[in-house]
Nucleic acid binder design. Structure first.
Length: 423
RNA sequence: GGAGAGGUGGCCGAGUGGCCGAAGGCGGCCGCUUGCUAAGCGGCAGAGGGUUAACAGCCCUCCGAGGGUUCGAAUCCCUCCCUCUCCGCCA
């Protein structure tokens, strides 16, 4: 959520920033300004009446104590009450509308973010690693996985439909190894390991920005009014909602492995084959709760921590800075890490590292008391470290041999318990 | 699922329908004292919002949430939510 005060004071600045995301957004701001003005007009009058009521009620108390008659004043207060009730109803309506608009406005892009419309305009920051050369035609991971007997797409769809996959034998073990490997790596870098609930309340998703706008992308357990998490970012970031932290509590580094559940509404036909896009996938997530002063340094470090996983696994990747049009709803600035997929001859997203500044903190009301005693919103960051399924796919493709076997990256061998996976 | 207890400020905890936004304690901040630390003494300090150029000030709201009774509710009534304890069931 944006700061209403900022919208009031610098509407043109806010509109300019938002229009770099989407040309339609400034209209929203005009509606908000309008409602905000209405709200304050009603509120001022309402408070005047309430103040009058309060003082008269007090007077009644005093008069009664002296044994005087209070019929007249009581009638006056009753009349006030009617007006107050009316205004309160009006205020409720306006505030509801205002809030629902505010919750649908995305975050402002940071000034350093390149202006652009879609992923075409993203900017490559750096590349790492050697792209492997094959003396044969490299196969896609789904072919490798099926031939190795470690990915079973038929069984997945038999149980749950499209975009579900059964991991079998070394496939399951590789997954488990990757999760442990990643968690250990992050823990060594100072992240506290968390194992959070996978079902959360609506307000938790509102806190991180998935609701109300992206309801369609979520699985919901209607009977209990709970949602399956689309990423561990949701429970981790919300861990400190409605809290006032001490300044010295910051920064807080968290990591968690969880499955992620996404309906993938609107991505029909994309990545139909393989395990790149699934309704359920495993991910190790990184979350930081930090002081506003150094959140951008923290973003650089967080991105490096995610990159580190690929370096250890010796998988070639590049880092891309998202342009304004490609930025997620809650993010001010985002680096995507993309890993090389030989069969596709291109880099594909495997991590997304964002600084949300105080956008989520404001929704969650996560604050800290600064040295002058003032309560301020924290900044929140998150990034995948990494998407496990995609990492597994990238290993299959980059480490494949001509006979269809797959070498296990050195760093992973102890975790997996084998050097090679063979058919 | 059944029975009971309870939800108050950063935390603990008191609260008679009307100077209670709330005693007291812990923790915090600022002084003083002390060679330093600790202790002691004195003082400051809940959150959100409106008004304002801003501060001070003034005002409004908030004692789990939502209704109700009343001139007036943390305090009385109703509904819901949550937590805890015991029993049952269960990984």
């Amino acid at each position: 959520m944006l700061d209403i005060e900022l919208i009031r004071k610098k509407p043109d600045f806010v509109k300019e920033r938002l229009s770099t995301r989407d040309k339609e957004l400034p209209t929203l701001i005009d509606q908000i300004l309008d409602l905000d003005k209405k709200r304050r007009t009603i509120l001022t009058e309402l408070e005047r009446l309430r103040s009058e009521r309060n003082s008269k009620s007090k007077e009644i108390g005093l008069l009664r104590r002296e044994g005087k008659d209070t019929k007249d004043i009581e009638a006056q207060v009753k009349a006030l009450k009617e007006k107050i009730d009316q205004l309160e109803e009006q205020l409720r309506e306006v505030e509801e509308d205002l809030r629902s608009l505010m919750l649908r406005v995305p975050n402002l892009p940071h000034e350093s973010v390149p202006i652009g419309e879609d992923e075409e305009d993203n900017v490559e920051i750096r590349r790492w690693g050697e792209i492997p050369k094959f003396s044969f035609e490299p196969k896609p991971h789904w072919e490798l996985g099926e031939r190795l007997g470690i990915l079973d797409f038929e069984k997945g769809s038999k149980l749950s439909g499209s975009r579900f996959t059964v991991f079998k034998g070394w496939g399951a073990r590789l997954t488990r190894a990757l999760i442990n490997f990643m968690l250990d790596l992050h823990r060594e870098r100072g992240y506290v390991e968390i194992s959070p609930p996978h079902l959360v309340k609506p307000e938790i998703l509102e806190g991180t920005g998935q609701l109300p706008k992206f309801e369609e992308d979520l699985y919901k357990c209607e009977r209990d009014n709970l949602y399956l998490i689309p990423t561990a970012e949701v429970p981790l970031t919300n861990l400190f909602r409605n809290e006032i932290l001490k300044e010295e509590d910051l920064p807080i580094y968290l990591t968690a492995y969880t499955p992620c559940y996404r309906r993938e509404a609107g991505s029909h036909g994309k990545d139909i084959r393989g395990i790149i896009r699934q309704h359920q996938f495993d991910k190790v997530e990184l979350v930081k709760i930090v002081h506003p002063e150094n959140s951008y340094e923290e973003l650089e470090k967080l991105t490096e921590d995610a990159e580190r996983v690929l370096k250890e696994l010796e998988l070639p990747y590049r880092v891309v800075e998202l342009c304004t049009g490609d930025l997620g709803f809650s993010a001010s600035k985002t680096y995507d890490i993309e890993v090389w997929f030989p069969s596709q001859g291109k880099y594909r997203e495997i991590s997304s590292c964002s600084n949300c500044e105080d956008f989520q903190a404001r929704r969650m009301r996560t604050r800290f008391k600064d040295s002058s005693g003032k309560n301020r919103f924290v900044h929140t960051l998150n990034g995948s470290g990494l998407a496990v399924g995609r990492t597994l796919a990238a290993i299959l493709e980059n480490y494949q041999k001509e006979d269809g076997s797959v070498e296990v990256p050195k760093a992973l061998r102890e975790y997996v318990g084998t050097d090679f996976i063979k058919p």
